[in-house]
Design a protein around this nucleic acid. Structure first.
Lengths: 334, 334
DNA sequence: TTGAAAGCGGTACCAG
DNA sequence: CTGGTACCGCTTTCAA
């Protein structure tokens, strides 16, 4: 059978209270007693039962992470960085993919609550605000990552989307582009990016020559979506010389569309992506893209939620990270 | 405070034992009592505490999954399919990335044991056999996926690697290729694939015209590795007309190497990959590749480990899945 | 059919 | 410094 604290106590000829104390380094304990207990634990190969101690009010050292889809490279890389930081700090991560479905999200939240996770990290892209408020009311620590809630006081680490759009535009304009198109999903963060993009253009006295059509069905294949939107742009007589896509997959779709219309990237048209996921450097041509500091984001949310555990903050923080441009070969001066 | 079974009992004016019974659908319970209990649970918004019931010997409904790297698309897709099947069956998955390091593997195993996971799924690529044996001796259910242990009795679901190699060769030979090179890591499964490949060639009276150099450093960038190996092949006077790469990243590296030598894929050289990860269809040209049934593999291991929980097997099974060729545009007849 | 009570493996308070 | 003991929230006999 499993060896318990009682077995250790018996072996070390002390009480279970003492064993518990040496494990948790609490109270004053004699050096020789401590040694005896450690030896006993060693000898019996004792593994403390986290469940039992969690029952007594201690942490489960487990955090729930809700993301839209673990198979999506952006989220798997983010999950990896959260996992890494979590493990450094002694926490395990249980990951749930919601597929943007409220139903799944509710189910997983309830499941993880039953398992008494210490807190939740949301990167889901869905998260009904009311659901988050419920959790906060129950005093369950939550943190948001890679997703911003305007006008809602939560702990969050997010990218400065406005700045991302601004920088992308600035770059393209410096390259000499004046006619630029946008390929983007209809979600909050993309609208922010576009706002930044537009502002940068205005500062240079430029504006969009075509209407921007946001992609509304965010569940469809981004590759296809990117292809379709780009295709439309390429059919104009007055076609753009550059395209700004709000994620890498969209950008790759745009590259494919260009190629199918007999256009070469970057010679005939420049394309910049967003995210800098691992595929950006793999495709041909390697993608110029706005890089999200995924590693850092993961690390920051983890640190954020832990600081909540420790009660170091009862106010709400919003950590905003800056994107940087990674220049590869899908763009050139005009 | 959290609502417990006592609160429910009080609200429903029954004992906690009765509440427990209705939750677990055990014992005979009067219809009206059952209703009262359900109503009380509903009213109080009761969430059973999984920890407490696990402490009493029930399952934690949590499974540990050890993989080399969650940021690697193959493993994140696999993890996703395991997660999906797990959730269907009421299990949560906690994922740990080992980076092929024994040290991390040990740490995570120990951590998850303390948290009393119901079992382990290994896709780690490291897994010291002795460590697995230890777990089995402690009667902790384990299952292996996407990794085969010859001569070791464990429950496993794996790909028929030999067949994968055989089919790839067969395909290339039917396309008219006679001079073929291999780009592969020095791991067990790849050696199996090569064995199958070689056998298929023999059957057609063919053999390798160059020595096969396996990539020994499996932690380096597969893209770089693929590029380097391919480059060597392309420097021969008598260069191959086709390359078989043992994973997609390697194949993409090979495509890049070809392009840098001024060769076009598939016109000048055909390249087939392995795995059929999502990037295979994204790159240019879309990759012809041996597809691993990742969805199915995830589903199968999950079902396998659950059948162990249920005690439906004390013997060991090895489920072997067949790969299939997905033909895209990186290959052509010669 | 329902309830009382003894654990499961720890923690923490209070005596000694 | 160390030990006794009352819980934590739930499951499981065993009686009633």
């Amino acid at each position: 059978m499993k060896v318990t604290i009682y077995d250790v106590a018996k072996e070390a000829k002390v009480s279970i209270a003492t064993v518990s104390n040496v494990i948790n380094k609490k109270g004053r304990i004699g050096e020789k007693t401590r040694r005896r207990v450690y030896d006993a634990m060693e000898k019996l190969n004792y593994e403390p039962n986290v469940l039992a101690s969690a029952l007594m009010g201690k942490q489960t050292k487990t955090i729930g992470l809700l993301i839209p889809d673990l198979a999506n490279p952006f989220f798997s890389e983010l999950a990896r960085s959260i996992e890494d930081r979590g493990h450094e700090l002694g926490y395990s991560i249980v990951i749930c993919s919601t597929d943007y479905q409220e139903e799944k999200e509710n189910k997983y939240i309830s499941l993880l609550k039953q398992k008494r996770v210490d807190g939740f990290i949301f990167a889901s892209g869905f998260e009904k605000q009311s659901r988050l408020e419920e959790l906060m009311q129950e005093d369950i620590p939550i943190a948001i990552v890679a997703r911003d809630y305007p006008n809602f006081a939560v702990n969050a680490v997010a990218l400065d989307d406005y700045m991302g759009g601004y920088l992308a535009a600035d770059y393209l304009i410096k390259l000499g582009h004046k006619k630029i198109g946008i390929v983007a999903l209809d979600v909050y963060s993309n609208r922010e990016r576009i706002r930044g993009f537009k502002d940068a253009m205005s500062e240079h006295g430029l504006k969009f020559i075509h209407d921007i059509e946001l992609i509304e069905d965010i569940k469809q294949s981004h590759l296809d979506a990117g292809r379709n939107v780009a295709k439309k742009y390429l059919q104009y007589d007055d076609k753009p010389t550059a395209l700004f896509a709000c994620n890498d997959l969209l950008a790759i779709g745009a590259i494919q569309a260009a190629r199918r219309s007999g256009l070469y990237v970057p010679n005939d048209i420049s394309i910049v992506g967003f995210d800098n996921t691992s595929i950006a450097s793999i495709v041909d041509p390697p993608l110029t893209t706005m890089s999200q500091p995924i590693q850092l984001m993961g690390r920051e949310v983890m640190d954020l939620i832990i600081s909540i555990f420790k009660g170091e903050r009862d106010d709400h923080v919003r950590v905003t990270l800056a994107p940087t441009l990674v220049e590869r070969d899908s763009t050139r001066t005009i």
